[in-house]
Design a protein around this nucleic acid. Structure first.
Lengths: 254, 254
DNA sequence: CGTATGTTTGATCAGCTTCAATGGAAGTGG
DNA sequence: CCACTTCCATTGAAGCTGATCAAACATACG
């Protein structure tokens, strides 16, 4: 894992103050002193290449913010069947579990090459003691995560293949949009997941994912091609996903 | 919801110091002052009858600890399909989401009649500020919840009907055992969920749950009959569930 | 240009669903 | 105390969604 992380030269990524993610309404607002504190906790950036396991099941890990690129969180059954639990986009916090010292039951792998902001293993107990506001922020972040997982459970348990894929696509499209990765006026976003990744996330086979994507394409709902997702009919995709218009909860940005 | 809650006469449940749940290794250890503080936050107990919705999707709710009885957390799709996200057993914290003031996207319904310890809507921000240790405890609790949901996602996405039911049964059996509800030497525990509940939790139809339970019974693995779950072959049930021996994370007991 | 990876399509099959009907157990009201 | 209702468990038969297996095709890359 960490062998595949390459330290980035100091200053190469610019200051945290200039981080483009700060402009996103997606994240919980932080007081200026708290923001400064968190920036101070950052131990530097690292470049992670595609395929790098930045968190490994059963092993101690550290806390990251994904700064650029996509990753995915997954577990494997004993016989090798793989389930992708969720995808991670820029701004996502990765490794809270590991940083808390709890048992890590999943792995996180880079879907693309990207940049991570490293936070090591901060002494969370002391951090929370010194800055009580952080506790609530972490907790709210965790609750947003729980809501998202509950939605996945409902999708995997009770939805058809088309609905599950719609759920995945609309969710990722919305998240891309929330971090300003959908150009105004555009209906497209970067989408590096292969059909195999989608299959492992939706609990389907790659073959059936392909059939279902063709269906969505022929219905003029959404097109996935060449690492680009284009949503032609967002209302219909949203309806298929059974999504209420409620935006995903705000999360913590370190 | 709260209409179906009947306040319990003060003192009827005995003092928190005598709570039998305190003896369970299942829960995070608390310092005596913190334990006293939490006991002081309790606003009394309430009796909830079977079928009572103690948390309703989209509505403000309050924080509870389930003291006795079972409940289940669920969401419904637009067309009525129901997914049970998880079951709640005595000792489980219910309504953290609601108490945080976040959007509540699920409902919690009593599976049996039971007793709740009510905590209203504590000012969590101030509570965390005054008692920083609580932040870490809540966070660890939330992470345990996330691990459990991730396991559900993997089960629903990648497991067969038999494996899913094994996952459910072994999980609930272990949790019953962790709160001393499996008599020493016994292989049975109280199990009030009907086959319809199991179907809605495992993402199956009641018919297929019945077939699968018969299979488990005929293989001499587990028997579910008359609100009683008997596990004849725990190793085999555990193997089917793909469970590593890792016990579920410890949770917070209020 | 050969190789690896991903996409597309087809054919067959099985796990699970759907629909339907019966029987048992528990609760309710006369 | 018994008919009546209701809920749940059980079983059967037929059908469909999605899995499995297989192979061709496209694309990127060293």
């Amino acid at each position: 894992m960490s062998v595949t992380l390459i330290a980035r030269p100091p200053g190469a990524g610019g200051s945290c103050d200039d981080c483009p993610l700060l402009d996103c309404a997606q994240f919980l607002a932080l007081s200026p002193p708290l923001r400064t504190l968190l920036a101070g906790l950052m131990q530097g950036q690292a470049i992670a290449i595609e395929g790098a396991e930045i968190v490994a099941a059963g092993q101690p890990g550290e806390l990251f913010t994904l700064h650029d690129g996509w990753a995915y969180r997954w577990t494997a059954l004993a016989d090798g069947r793989r389930q992708i639990i969720d995808f991670h986009l820029p701004g996502d916090l990765i490794g809270v579990e590991a940083a808390l010292g709890g048992p890590v039951t999943h792995s996180v792998t880079m879907l693309t090459s990207g940049v991570l902001c490293r936070f090591g293993r901060p002494d969370l107990a002391r951090l929370l003691a010194d800055h009580p506001a952080l506790g609530e922020l972490f907790l709210r972040s965790a609750m947003a995560e729980i809501r998202s997982l509950e939605r996945s459970v409902a999708a995997l348990g009770r939805m058809t293949a088309t609905e599950r894929l719609a759920t995945l696509l609309v969710g990722l499209y919305r998240r891309s949009s929330a971090i300003n990765r959908v150009a105004p006026g555009s209906r497209s976003c970067f989408f590096p997941a292969t059909q195999r990744h989608l299959a492992d996330a939706a609990g389907l086979t790659p073959t059936h994912v392909n059939n279902t994507l063709r269906h969505l394409r022929e219905q003029g709902i959404a097109t996935l091609s060449g690492r680009l997702l284009t949503v032609h009919d967002l209302p219909e995709l949203t309806r298929l996903a059974g999504h209420d218009a409620a935006p995903p909860g705000r999360r913590l940005l370190l």
